[in-house]
Nucleic acid binder design. Structure first.
Lengths: 209, 209
DNA sequence: AAATTAAATGAACATTGTTCATTTTTACAA
DNA sequence: TTGTAAAAATGAACAATGTTCATTTAATTT
């Protein structure tokens, strides 16, 4: 009787767990060795199942990377939670940028997957899902913060969405150039601090608005 | 006698031309079908030579893409030449951003190759060349323009290099989000004009500095 | 004309993502 | 317990990729 329950539990666990296991293994390889070293065979080897099994739980490689990209957004939005304690919207916006930048630089490949690589978007296309919910939700957070700034009298004479997109572009561009090794390639005096220094320039500007 | 000269010329031409031919063919395929459709076999097929011949002239695929990326920078810097007629440094800076954005949006895959993809940087690493001359030269143009702005009294209280990097990040971020299809995925009212609208917000800010 | 050098070749190899007929396991009714 | 049907797992096989290299072909020099 009790054994029956246990068996059921184990059965249920392993059934869903195999998908989770594949994903965890994929994430581990992905974080450790980068995206091009994360092959289906590597994943199946590392959890001791066959290649075919991976395809039972995921349509293709893009599906795996889309799932990973979603995990990345879950982590990012959880890191955004500390911002709710910042009352002033402009202060919150500035802190948001810092959290975003820190996340990007500490999770480079994950950031690349979330905001640069084609895999997650190709998955959405294949599934005929036009909605990029993860990106929408994140951009909404930014928009409502910028909107609060506008209501509070900051950013006078600026449009909401273009301004929000500009700010996003700003921090995304910095992180992106850093991650793609373009910022170190260029002759900058202090390459190791350029992202932070550039963001501080931007914050100076914010103050004047 | 004259035939001898001609033969020499033809010989010389075809010798160097094969490398150019490979590159032109690679560029054509790359622009038409994107980077993942540009295979060595496609290139060799389209010019009617064998696979091995491509490897006579290029060390590997990264070498081809690095050469293409260099061509892209030549094109970009030639498009920058119209800027020399703009006297006011701030005006020139603004125009520079527009040229940059136009180039990026009209040559999406090329822009991706120049500023996002790993291939050109991996090539530099493999060759033990630390210098990213193309990027350095382009960033220098931006820096000297920003420096002129500082000398002319704009951007008071701002540091040269961080400010230049911030501006670069700004326009790069916009183009990058657009090219990677992240801007259309997000819920924006006017997605087709968001890049221009966001850049206009940035120009409003420049005016105030 | 012969010999040497350079250039071009494409078969072969190792890796990839992906498929699918087959086997193994599980669930459940008789 | 046994038999059967459904579900899950398998891995051989395929096509496409980048890359190598012994061999062949062409060009140049002696």
């Amino acid at each position: 009787m009790s054994s029956k329950v246990i068996i059921e539990d184990v059965g249920k666990k392993t059934k869903e767990d195999l998908k989770v296991l594949i994903l965890n293994s994929a994430k581990k390889l992905f974080v450790e060795k980068g995206i091009e070293q994360t092959t289906i065979r590597n994943i199946s080897d590392s959890i001791g199942c066959s290649i075919g099994t991976v395809y039972v739980y995921f349509k293709d490689k893009n599906a795996i990377f889309h799932a990973l990209h979603t995990q990345g957004f879950i982590q990012l939005s959880s890191e955004f939670k500390v911002l709710s304690h910042v009352g002033n919207p402009l202060e919150r916006l500035r802190a948001m940028g810092k959290v975003y930048i820190n996340f990007a630089l500490k999770n480079r490949d994950m950031y690349d997957l979330m905001f640069n690589l084609k895999a997650p978007m190709e998955f959405l296309n294949d599934e005929k899902l036009q909605e990029w919910n993860e990106g929408k939700a994140t951009f909404d957070v930014l928009c409502s913060t910028v909107n609060e700034c506008l209501t509070a009298g900051y950013f006078k004479g600026h449009e909401l969405e273009p301004t929000a997109f500009m700010i996003w572009s700003m921090v995304h561009g910095m992180c992106s150039l850093e991650i793609s090794n373009r910022s170190v390639g260029v002759n900058i005096q202090n390459p190791e601090t350029i992202v932070i220094a550039a963001y501080e320039e931007f914050m100076k500007i914010m103050d004047k608005l």
